[in-house]
């Protein structure tokens, strides 16, 4: 049996700033979660030692705050880039409420989440940049980490002398006190973790099923689309 081997063309999807953002975001989040879990529940390391020569918990907290700053600045940088970058990086992508994008959302939900096999699952339905469900999930993620940044800097503000953390000082009275702010900050971390699990899984899933370089796109920047698609100009993402 011979099958048709489609011809593919290489598309440049993720520009360098987007890729830098992505991996800085990953590293900062990784550090924040690791150090955050330790802050929340420090293990009994070296409990027999003298305090004089130790500072590991202080360093742990320092890494958390430093990573918090990097994470926040990186996010600001990404927002800036959403006005400068290509169409796949544009801010509009994250509000997938146009008719086309809603259709794409329906398709993704049906085909990829509920795993049905719609008849006309032709190449025009496959998105080049983010699919509509993914981009919507990034909007939710954005709001989630904004809340994480607000609660984090609110806790940090009291010991800060710089104006930036103080911008978030109003968050504490909103919750009535640090205790609830910390609890919310802690609980939101689990939402970030759950988001990451789903995100990484779905990237692998798409790579496995579609074979267009989903995983490697965040390293090299390229994805592949069928030649017909370029020829017929049937594109969902403009």
């Amino acid at each position: 049996m011979t099958t048709i081997s489609h011809e593919y063309k290489r598309v440049f999807v993720w520009e360098v700033p987007v890729r830098i953002f992505h991996w800085v975001n990953f590293l900062a989040l990784f550090a924040l979660i690791a150090t955050g879990i330790l802050i929340g529940n420090p293990p009994a390391l070296m409990s027999g030692a003298e305090a004089t020569n130790q500072y590991w918990f202080g360093i742990n907290r320092f890494i958390h705050f430093a990573a918090g700053y990097i994470f926040t600045l990186n996010l600001v940088y990404r927002v800036f880039w959403s006005f400068m970058g290509n169409k796949y990086a544009n801010w509009k992508v994250f509000f997938p409420f146009s008719k086309k994008r809603r259709k794409n959302m329906g398709h993704v939900l049906k085909s990829d989440i509920l795993l049905q096999n719609p008849k006309n699952s032709d190449f025009s339905n496959i998105s080049v940049g983010h699919n509509a469900v993914a981009s919507f999930s990034y909007l939710v993620f954005f709001i989630l980490v904004l809340a994480q940044i607000a609660t984090g800097f609110a806790l940090y503000a009291d010991n800060a002398t710089w104006w930036f953390p103080k911008l978030f000082a109003w968050v504490v009275p909103l919750f009535g006190g640090d205790a609830l702010v910390r609890l919310v900050h802690h609980i939101l971390m689990w939402f970030v973790i759950i988001f990451s699990i789903v995100h990484v899984y779905l990237v692998f899933y798409h790579d496995w099923l579609e074979g267009r370089g989903e995983v490697s796109s965040m390293f090299g920047g390229f994805k592949f689309v069928r030649k017909e698609r370029v020829d017929t100009k049937k594109d969902l993402n403009d």
Partner: peptide, 28 residues
């Protein structure tokens, strides 16, 4: 406490992803 609830939720989600992976090897 927050960690217990979080771990269970993350476990459920990871399990759902694994289930989805198995289901997709069949469906797709």
């Amino acid at each position: 406490n927050a960690d217990k609830v979080g771990m269970v939720a993350a476990g459920v989600v990871a399990g759902a992803a694994a289930g989805h992976a198995i289901a997709s090897t069949m469906s797709k």
